[in-house]
Nucleic acid binder design. Structure first.
Lengths: 307, 307
DNA sequence: GTTCCGCATGAATCGATAG
DNA sequence: ACTATCGATTCATGCGGAA
């Protein structure tokens, strides 16, 4: 894969720009203060050794700090940086590199404004004598300024009362106690709930990981970037994922009509996202040329799809 | 309240020992390696100024470290320390004293073995322009040794499969998706589920806060210490809460037949717990002397109540 | 079209075994 | 002693195929 080159495509007025290489270097191509939202999930320490190098716990902070420094440069003052990360447990103890990273990033100038909890519905199974299954990850929010863009209405969820009554009607038994008043990230069929009472979510998100999905299983479920993209950007804004992976963030940005940049160092991942995007262009051309009447089938490009 | 003195009571073979004063001093009365479990929720920084003096954010770590040092001394090598703590948000940013405390306690010799997430079902309402409601708190687990006592079977919960099939049977619709398969800390009526398939919980706990409960609103719901007491101790073990407050930990320990020690510096809190305990003794005496047949009414002391 | 059952598959962790 | 690899453990999910 010696001749891989950067790639840009425009689909329905929305651009996706793929940069191939080490994000620490490639970030230099991005202008200052040009990004509205960074959503990323870097390789965790000692994970993904086969694809990424597998950054050891002891080197993680010093490996990440130059990258976060560049991220600060490219982010707009009104922008937000969402970092999905999780410390590993080794030898019976939690490693501390994540909380050390938070402290160092603060010294770097970042404001640590929030810590969302991603409560994973389907966490990895297993049994050990000294611990239970790990069912959550950190979603750290960093900002450059105290005032940043936030569109809370975009992620409202149906209120518990209505959901509760629906459950009661169906079950005619109150012994089963559904465990949430406000279900953060209620799911795909949000349109079903339109017109009902809505409430703001909390800082605990409740998504499943996508496992055994398609050919490639992204550890980063689509719901996750979608939620943050809706919350922190509007149409036409620019989103960056410096550890693109299978491109979930960028494809979600495209779906939601936000321009995006993705950086990836692993050639297989890079080429895969590129081919997915090329397929979309191809489908769109076929669609326009031969079957104009079938336009709606490709819901990705139909207006109003966001709702 | 000048003449408040320490207090010990034995109810049904279980002792509760209340120590009045600053826990940093009072802890010295407790022998080395004598405690099986410490569960506590210390005053958070800048909170409860009226009662505790309000430790400022900048002094919090240095205030807590001498206490945690004493706690390490009194804890058995097989014991566990559960610390319920929450950083405050000040001026739009999360304080870092909690994660700094974790790092310092590790230097002190503690093992940071786990971070449970307490997902509060009904968190404090409100709306802010730059953040959502805070619906979780940290429950940090520290240990002295890598091998510690843990009784996982005591906190098992019904499996998702069973809950799922039950829900499906009742609802004949799969559009409504309840958001958890294994509900950590499913609630009081755990006995309803006995005989079904059970699974081990995760490290995300899912309790409601007790709202509108008694005269005083304890921020610490009973479920929380109960879950950890069942998980980390057996009957007859000794439990310590160095910041007793309204005594939830100690009263729960009594209910579960674990000896306990509670330390409290605020006279009103101390006297309140003392009077609650005295009432229990009184009720028990009345019960035994005059109404032996009504014994079961005072379920706290009836054997088999734990189940 | 539904609903139900069976199956593979995970950002996992520990303990034992091998260099 | 210290690292590297491997097997055992475990359960929610979404898929395919069958009634």
């Amino acid at each position: 894969m010696e001749n891989i080159s950067d790639f840009i495509v425009n689909i329905g007025g929305t651009s996706v720009n793929l940069l191939y290489g080490d994000c620490k270097e490639k970030l230099k191509q991005i202008p200052d203060n040009s990004i509205d939202l960074i959503v990323t999930s870097p390789p965790y320490a000692d994970q993904r050794k086969n694809t990424y190098g597998g950054i050891p716990v002891t080197k993680y902070v010093q490996w990440f700090l130059p990258i976060s420094n560049e991220l600060m440069r490219v982010l707009k003052p009104s922008g937000t940086f969402i970092l999905n990360i999780k410390e590993k447990v080794a030898d019976g103890e939690r490693s501390t590199y994540v909380i050390e990273l938070i402290l160092e990033m603060r010294r770097q100038g970042w404001l640590w404004t929030e810590e969302f909890i991603w409560h994973k519905k389907n966490c990895y199974p297993g049994k050990w004598p000294n611990r239970f299954r790990d069912a959550w990850e950190r979603l750290l929010q960093f900002n450059k300024e105290k005032h940043f863009n936030m569109y809370q209405e975009a992620v409202m969820v149906p209120t518990g009362e209505w959901a509760k009554s629906r459950l009661k009607n169906l079950s005619n038994s109150d012994k089963y106690r559904c465990d949430s008043k406000v279900l953060s990230g209620f799911g795909k069929n949000i349109s079903n709930w339109v017109g009902r009472e809505m409430a703001y979510p909390t800082n605990v998100l409740h998504f499943a990981t996508e496992c055994g999905n398609k050919s490639h299983s992204a550890a980063f479920p689509e719901y996750l970037p979608e939620w943050f993209i809706k919350l922190f950007t509007k149409e036409g804004d620019k989103i960056l994922d410096p550890f693109m992976g299978s491109g979930t963030t960028n494809l979600t940005a495209l779906k939601l009509k936000r321009d995006s940049i993705g950086i990836e160092i692993v050639p297989e991942y890079f080429q895969h996202v590129k081919s997915v995007l090329n397929n979309k262009v191809y489908e769109r051309r076929i669609n326009k040329a031969d079957h104009p009447i079938r336009g709606r089938e490709y819901s990705l490009f139909s207006s109003g799809e966001n709702q």
